[in-house]
Design a protein around this nucleic acid. Sequence first.
DNA 1: TTAGGGTTAG
Length: 638
Amino acid sequence: MKAISKLKWMMPPSLSRHCSHTPIASRNAANHPPSSLLDDFTRFCYQRDLPRAIRAMDAMQRLGLQADAVTYSELIKCCLSRRAIAEAKLVRNHIFSGGYDPKTFLVNNLINMYVKFNLLEEAQALFDQMPVRNVVSWTTMISAYSNVKLNDKALDLMVLMLRDGVRPNMFTYSSVLRACDSLVSLGQLHCSIIKAGLDSDVFVRSALIDIYAKWGELRCALCVFGEMVTGDSVVWNSIIGAFAQNNDGDGALNLFKRMKRAGFQADQPTLTSVLRACTGLALLELGAQVHVHVLKYDQDLILNNALLDMYCKCGSLEDAKSVFDRMVEKDVISWSTMIAGLAQNGYSREALKLFELMKVSGTKPNYITILGVLFACSHAGLVEDGWYHFRSMKNVYGIDPGREHYGCMIDLLGRAGKLDEAIRLIEEMEYEPDAIIWRPLLDACRVHRNMDVAEYAAKQVLNLDPEDAGTYILLSNIYANSQRWEDVAVVRKNMRERGVRKEPGCSWVEVTKQIHAFILGDSSHPQIVEINRQLNLLIHKLREVGYVPDTSFVLRDLEGEQKEDSIRYHSEKLAIAFGLMSLSKGKTIRIRKNLRICGDCHIFAKLTAKVENRNIVIRDPIRYHHFQDGICSCGDYW
DNA sequence: TTAGGGTTAG
């Protein structure tokens, strides 16, 4: 007791309150006055002097001395900030030595430390040994499992916690929501949250919005958002992100406007979601406007990646390259985005060169990077390169080829007319073939007129997905190309009977930051009469330079818009005519389509680009076509 | 006296 009173006396007043505990009596205090040792230890902990604190702790252990729980907490913080795992283990051993029974909050601190070091098993072992677990102990473990997506473990722990009679709080709910694995359990959790009166907590609210968005339940997300009385920027970001991630760019942009009206400043996550919305809608002008705000966060990696993707997907490769070159920090996403962007925009060889640079830079490619590389090969007919990269993904990078990589290879071989080789690859594959495999094969059969394989592949796709309108159309077009009209009729009948409807072709064009939509056969655009007049004039002009509408595309029309008289009014033709009359000379006409471009529109766009001296970019769901001076960046290979 | 939120590539 004497030692303690001396210790308190020697400590600065700010620290003395932490030493209310009685240290275990010294076993051999002759040469080491315990009071000064404890004093030193406490001081080193508060000074965050880890090496000296550890040395003092060693000496204390030899004397059987222990300090106050708050002091140990300081030491744990110090280990955490220095990522000193070995020292952290010494601290743990010391805390549990000498039969000392540490306070619950101290063990919670230790568990949290192990979690932060990604040593989940050690955290779980400590948790299991605890005689008493409080809400923080449970929440720390639940949150740890949620973070590493061990959702079952997180949910199991929640059940055990309830059985143990510990009531979850807002921390627990905001953690466990991320682990929610079904809409049913989400509904149950949401009910409990309301019952406990925790639904007004902003953390819980943003977690609810995120998880509803993850399950595609935007209406529920919006309800949770709408109940918010006091504003919160993260909750705004959650709801904007929810719409952006569910491909509702319009919804995201409208919410963004509301956020600004409500007086909130856009930060990195806001701008990232807004860029994603622009990317989805191909709104280059708006995206470029957002770029100005991005400059404030000059070297934010995620934001720059989103910007890069926006420029790639809006077909503005110059801007994308400039962003990419200026990025000081690049990660695997930056490289993958640029590689895929180049490939989709018709710059396959540049994409492959960039892949080489990526390897030199030391960034390890991943599953998605290789998909971009194989996409580049398949869209440029680079069979040898494709095989080389396909083989090296496993041998060099240790990435197992997934179905999608096989799909790319089959696409590559199929386009190059190597149907036998494609089929051999399917046979060699360790996966059961599915639509990802059969579709590219089917497409290759259409191009290379292989009826037998086409029929087989189409039937396989329809077995797996009987409502896939694209495949019915493809099959019927393949029959039509071979004049097998009875088979065409059977396919159409099947479609009708199964209630399968094809999506109508739609094109969007951005004019002065406004989106104008054109749907085949829809005359709701206020300027439709003038647009049709322009289109007819244009067709007349093109005919003079040799344009002949290719009606064979009516038959092999990829995914819709197949009416014989409709080819003239395909949505992209209307969009091009509108672009020509609305955008000033020299401005690129940028069009986004929901279906793949048909061959006739492709020729039409090439000739228009030449005759009108206008750049046209058309983005379809798979790739991009840059029309300039009578040629297309895809090299007519798509 | 410890535990919880939003953003990027196919």
